[in-house]
Design a protein around this nucleic acid. Sequence first.
DNA 1: ATCGGGACTGTACGCATGTACAGTATTCTG
DNA 2: CAGAATACTGTACATGCGTACAGTCCCGAT
Lengths: 203, 203
Amino acid sequence: MRTVPISAGDLTARARIVASALERFAAHGYEAATMRDIAAHAGVSTALVTHHFGTKQALREECDARVVRFIAEKQDAPGTPSDVLGEVLGTFGPYLARMLGDGGAASDALFERLLEVARATIADGSASGWLRPARDPEAQAAALVMLGVAPFLMLGPLTTWAGGDSEAALQRIAAPLAELYTHGLATDDRLLAAAGLATEEAR
Amino acid sequence: MRTVPISAGDLTARARIVASALERFAAHGYEAATMRDIAAHAGVSTALVTHHFGTKQALREECDARVVRFIAEKQDAPGTPSDVLGEVLGTFGPYLARMLGDGGAASDALFERLLEVARATIADGSASGWLRPARDPEAQAAALVMLGVAPFLMLGPLTTWAGGDSEAALQRIAAPLAELYTHGLATDDRLLAAAGLATEEAR
DNA sequence: ATCGGGACTGTACGCATGTACAGTATTCTG
DNA sequence: CAGAATACTGTACATGCGTACAGTCCCGAT
């Protein structure tokens, strides 16, 4: 257990590389982020990155593992496990958004982890009664993940929309989403009908 | 006005290039799509692409203009202008998702167009009464665009989740979204409170 | 003290990309 | 039916990418 405060300069070069990779992958995506850029932002040479991780793909796997470990810690933490998804997205939102948007096997694995978190949230909410259960709980979990990640996927346009401040964009977009989560959007069942769902459901 | 049915083979090479670019940009994103790939799928040489459009960026602008024109036609069309956003996304959903996700000035311009569509939808829904208005209509419009684009942004993981069929993924994810739009998700006001919104609102 | 291994770097190679250029075929125009 | 403009192609070039390699520095174990 670490007892002294640490700063970026005190970190191992290896740790600085991972942190830099997480940031550059989050900012530009996996393909667009370059090994040279990652190395430069970590203050090391490009060769050291390959020395520690071998390939760019392996570096990404290390980043993914770091995120997965963070999720597992949040899941296993005592106290309030209510908004694990929110905490995870608050820390790794941009990174997860980029990786899930790129697709591929690694992306699918991360999505599966987030699905587990969402399933737990739904189970908890259904048991406690504060969450309205859906006909298809698995699809509801996928929708929950999608809705959580969506603001980060569109952070670029949303930031411009909000005047250049990404934090302000996330906060402003959160308000109508909270209203949506609470009341819905439509006043009748036309959307359910359009989705091919029967309308004789119980309120 | 064209009166005879047209097939892909009958199209001008220029039109085939634009169609190919729209498809490759949608499938792989702007950066990852290559001029050689676009040319090959259009059945022409790479040099012809540069001959017609000059640069890759100019080709993208042509694609964007095509989409913008499509949106304008849908907006100006008579009859039911109720779900213009849905029709636009049904045709150019993957393309718009990739372009909006990449960010940049062109992305912001497309987002602004979609915002206008969403504003019109909200105005119509508020007037007709089927849509529950939000405290911040502009943010509601942005949220509407975001929620519409989100499934396409995550089409990769969602497709794997649904067993490899992207159409099935979109359909299955639409069900809980329709429920969300109709009833909301929470049974109390805790999410509104968490978003910093006062709870003394009228239902 | 030394010596062996890991941290670390500079350089270079092969490859894919966007683009420029010269040249040929085709189509329109007078 | 010439001639000019346009459609179209093959090739080549500069650039940036991921990665491999040889070599230097430094620190801990014997």
